[in-house]
């Protein structure tokens, strides 16, 4: 018997986390920031969360176990089961730290580059994502290729596992709501117009009196912070992370979602995300049952996603829901 409710909860959590990534990318794209390093900030958030979520409870309870061996992982599980206050505080602290680390990293990394030339930002971010992945892969305190495996579920102390899942889903979607609020408020404001001007012709925006490198860095700091929180949410949802989750293909998956929905359009980005994430997840779920022999199941998933993109963009080159009208509501 297939667990339909469980499938739906997993799917909507998955979509929610992807929505944070695509909403922030929509704001970045409409500000002229070619963020090819989405995964860098996502991974940074996830690793910050995992670091706090595993080392901190062990340190507080005075255990000397490593979070990478069986004893440590078991101990973490026991702590999360028996100590709700500690379990939740570690989670909340991780969310805050994930935001701060990713935001600061985005600000410090890109401010100098925005000043040199916006074309270089995309390349820098792309390579930074890979450099970080290799760093995780080769750093012992971060678990190397195995990554972290004992990240505690923040609601592990609830008697019912289903209740914990549902509660987590609500938290994810509250954060999606917050991200949506932030992105739409900014895009529909005078600042949104400045960002749009910056994207179309940075020199004109500069001549209009706007310090474009600083504005871009601030926007990127905010969106990267939110992306970092998405990473934390992912880490605590999956309770284990490893460097292989943070390959550049993740970045381009988000780009595909935004392009599919119609670049520059919030509603479009949301539609594109829901469509692609569902197709992707459903394929992940269904393909193993087919038992393909000609193509490996994982590649089949990519082919399906590519096919969906091709069909939609052939039928509607501007995306599913292109942006209409001006910026100002007045």
């Amino acid at each position: 018997m297939i667990d339909v409710l469980g499938f739906l909860i997993t799917l909507t959590t998955y979509i929610g986390i992807y929505l944070v990534l695509s909403l922030t990318l929509t704001l970045e794209v409409s500000s002229g920031i070619t963020n090819f390093g989405k995964v860098a900030f996502y991974g940074l958030g996830a690793y910050t969360g995992a670091l706090i979520g595993t080392y901190l409870p062990l340190a507080i309870t005075g255990s000397r176990a490593s979070p990478f061996d069986v004893n440590g992982i078991q101990l973490l599980y026991t702590i999360s089961k028996s100590n709700p206050v500690l379990d939740l505080s570690v989670f909340l602290l991780s969310l805050a730290a994930g935001f701060a680390v990713s935001a600061l990293f985005g600000l410090l990394l890109t401010y100098p580059i925005h000043r040199v030339g916006s074309a270089l930002v995309g390349f820098t971010l792309l390579s930074t994502g890979e450099v970080l992945r290799l760093f995780y892969l080769n750093t012992e305190p971060l678990g190397e290729s195995k990554g972290f495996m004992g990240i505690p579920n923040p609601f592990a102390w609830l008697p019912q596992a289903r209740g914990a899942e549902a509660l987590y889903l609500i938290i994810v979607w509250c954060f999606v709501g917050l991200t949506y609020f932030i992105v739409s408020r900014i895009m529909n404001s005078p600042l949104g117009r400045i960002l749009k001007g910056m994207r179309d012709d940075e020199l004109v925006a500069l001549y209009a009196g706007w310090p474009t490198p600083l504005i871009k860095s601030k926007v990127l700091a905010l969106t990267s912070g939110l992306t970092g929180v998405a990473g934390v949410l992912w880490a605590y949802y999956f309770t284990s992370i490893n460097p292989n989750m943070f390959t550049p293909s993740l970045t381009f998956n988000i780009w595909a979602m935004v392009i599919l929905g119609g670049i520059d359009s919030i509603v479009g980005g949301v539609l594109g995300t829901v469509l692609l994430a569902s197709v992707d997840y459903a394929a992940r779920f269904v393909i193993p049952f087919i038992g393909t022999t000609l193509v490996t199941p994982d590649y089949l998933r990519w082919i399906i996603v590519g096919l969906v993109m091709l069909v939609v963009l052939l039928k509607k080159p501007e995306g599913l829901a292109p942006r209409r009208g001006g910026v100002s509501k007045l």
Partner: peptide, 15 residues
């Protein structure tokens, strides 16, 4: 050089 995606009014507002 005007911003192509903005209207004349919005181009003015940018300044």
């Amino acid at each position: 050089r005007l911003i192509p995606s903005l209207t004349v009014l919005e181009n003015m507002l940018l300044f």
